[in-house]
Design a protein around this nucleic acid. Structure first.
Length: 113
DNA sequence: TGGTTGACGACAT
DNA sequence: CATGTCGCCAACC
């Protein structure tokens, strides 16, 4: 199984309203330092893959050769109920797997400035 | 075989 | 916080 396909299979499992970082995907696949390769793979992802649920380590939407997709990604995320603060996904509230909703309630003081 | 290319990430400035 | 640098990696040529 090529690395690319493994990435596709994993991304396909990300629940609606949740996001995962390139680095997490790489780590989950047993290659903690292949985050960059993950991004490269997503650039060739099938149209039905929920690629918009993948963001960078800071919760931001990474730049790409064709900027068009960036807007699409932001819109799709918002439509799923993913909250963005100053252009970034609040990872503490939507990161997957684990502790998304819990943090979203404010229990972990993510946005309690 | 060896070099290039990105939807990355950790750090230093 | 906003850049710039550098290391890393799979896929392609």
């Amino acid at each position: 199984m090529s690395f690319r396909v493994e990435v596709f299979r994993l991304v396909a499992r990300i629940p609606r309203g949740r996001v995962v970082t390139y680095g997490q995907i790489a780590a989950l696949l047993g290659r903690p330092r292949a985050a960059r390769a993950v991004g490269r793979a997503l650039g060739r992802a099938p149209g039905d893959l929920p690629w918009h649920r993948v963001v960078n380590a800071r919760g931001g939407i990474s730049r790409r050769s064709r900027p068009s997709g960036m807007l699409t990604q932001r819109i799709r995320l918002e439509q799923e109920g993913v909250t963005l603060r100053r252009g970034r996904v609040v990872l503490g509230a939507h990161a997957w797997p684990g502790r998304g909703r819990l943090a979203a309630r404010g229990g972990l003081g993510c946005d309690s400035h």
